[in-house]
Design a protein around this nucleic acid. Structure first.
Lengths: 262, 262
DNA sequence: CTTTGATACTTTAGGGCGTAAAGTGATTCT
DNA sequence: AGAATCACTTTACGCCCTAAAGTATCAAAG
């Protein structure tokens, strides 16, 4: 039997993800650990929240904890695993129950809202998931929450699964637009309107035939009307709300179809 | 008036995106250019397609063209702009018309399918967009295509816009799952089943109480039944199809609602 | 026909990154 | 007192992007 590269590492990662978060203090000889996996993960999350994923390096995390980059390797196998831990711990923040007084739909809306908040609080989540599934408790928690909230639709679980992933994708996509706009504003120092204004002026100058080439887009009008609050972010929020509604309408149609034409 | 950092760069980027793709040969003194922006972008796309975004570096692109990394800077301001160009040129590949004999719904399905194909052919697209909008011709082309296909629903354009972004997000999300599974298989050399099998064995060992903690997830059964073809990829495809259907059902409901209860 | 100047491309260098390997010093057990 | 252990640092390597300076090639000007 061939032992594949990364198989031992896989066990180590899983232990980190699922193992106890408070480790009993060591007994043997040698110095006591001054850090912990949890402290490192928390520091890393703080950095990513505040300065973005680009600012997250083993060096920056070490520095924030008063250590060198290499000190982290005592606790964590590498940066990949650290990021997996950040991702999974953060997903664990999602609330697990939603008021279901009014049936499945308000609960689903509340859940979508909570997902939106979570991603907006930790926008770097969106840059992490392109990696393979982490299979940690946080990821399971999110799946469990989504599935159980939407199981209340009465649809067979195998179909609920698709609803879950579609909902998740709609939320992620629209929150991504919101997060991008914030990040761009922060990084460039430009307000959204300034950036967009400069950009569309440039577009008008360099591509005068734009309305002719993209008539339907043009019919939507100038994308930025004068608005007093962050425009793209508001747009993203609207897209989120509309997308979720659309999807839930689809779910309702599926329920009706499943219960037979009345 | 303050001149913000990156403002001049913005003009340069826009010119690269929108300018003529075949540049007239230089006339003045000095050696003739041996490369071109288009050649560089094409080489970069080849690399990203074949080896993934991680393998894309100024060095690797230069090498593929028989130059050093620095040679590229004669044509392109930096890596950021190169990636923007790759992204936008690739989006331009999306077909622009879809058979609408059967009404808007088959056309929308065809469009969704084309988007799926495009992203599966160029999975790195999914890692690029977390950046700010590129505003190049390719992006406009995609928007125009999506909008015009879905404008056939008869809904007001302002609402079609939300449909467009929801559809786009559903497609992107599910194709991402498919792409990830391919990439993981390629990178580790493990087949999907082997990887997943090892992982769930590990899970069962390290987290024996998993079914109790996540009952709904557990009810879905072991995620991998014996299957002969790539499992996650098939799963992603199913999620794509189901998600699109769900969304289009939602659109239909919106149409009915808009045209008034009959 | 030489000189000038523009320009494609290379070389060198500097500051990032992740992490392997070796060294240091404190602690506890024998 | 000595040995073993282990947290943490230092050093070093190879990769990244790209600024700056150097080189070679060409067209036009004198």
């Amino acid at each position: 039997m061939v032992v594949f590269a990364g198989q031992g590492d896989a066990r180590r990662s899983m232990e980190l993800l699922w193992g106890p978060r408070v480790v009993a203090p060591r007994t043997g000889p040698g110095p006591k650990p001054g850090l912990s996996v949890e402290a490192i993960v928390a520091a890393a999350i703080d950095i990513a929240d505040a300065e973005g994923m680009a600012a997250l390096s083993m060096r920056s995390v070490g520095e924030r904890l008063g250590r060198t980059a290499m000190a982290l390797y005592t606790y964590v196998p590498g940066k990949t695993e650290l990021v997996d831990l950040m991702y999974d711990r953060t997903l664990g923040e999602l609330p697990s129950s939603f008021p279901s007084d009014g049936g499945w739909r308000p609960a689903a809306l509340g859940l979508a809202d909570a997902l939106w908040d979570l991603h907006l609080r930790h926008p770097w989540l969106l840059q992490v998931s392109p990696a393979r599934p982490v299979l940690g408790p946080g990821e399971f928690h999110v799946q469990e929450t989504l599935l159980s909230v939407l199981a209340a639709t009465g649809l067979p679980l195998a179909r609920v699964r698709w609803v879950v992933s579609a909902l998740f994708n709609v939320v992620r996509g629209s929150v991504q637009a919101a997060a991008e706009s914030r990040q761009a504003a922060r990084e460039t120092g430009l307000s959204e309107e300034d950036w967009w204004g400069a950009r569309s002026a440039l577009l008008g100058e360099l591509v005068p035939d734009l309305p002719a080439r993209f008539p339907t887009v043009a019919r939507l009008g100038p994308s930025v009307e004068a608005s007093e609050e962050p425009y793209l972010e508001r747009e993203a929020r609207l897209s989120f709300e509309a997308g979720v509604e659309l999807l839930l309408d689809g779910v309702e149609a599926a329920i009706v179809k499943a219960s037979g034409p009345r």
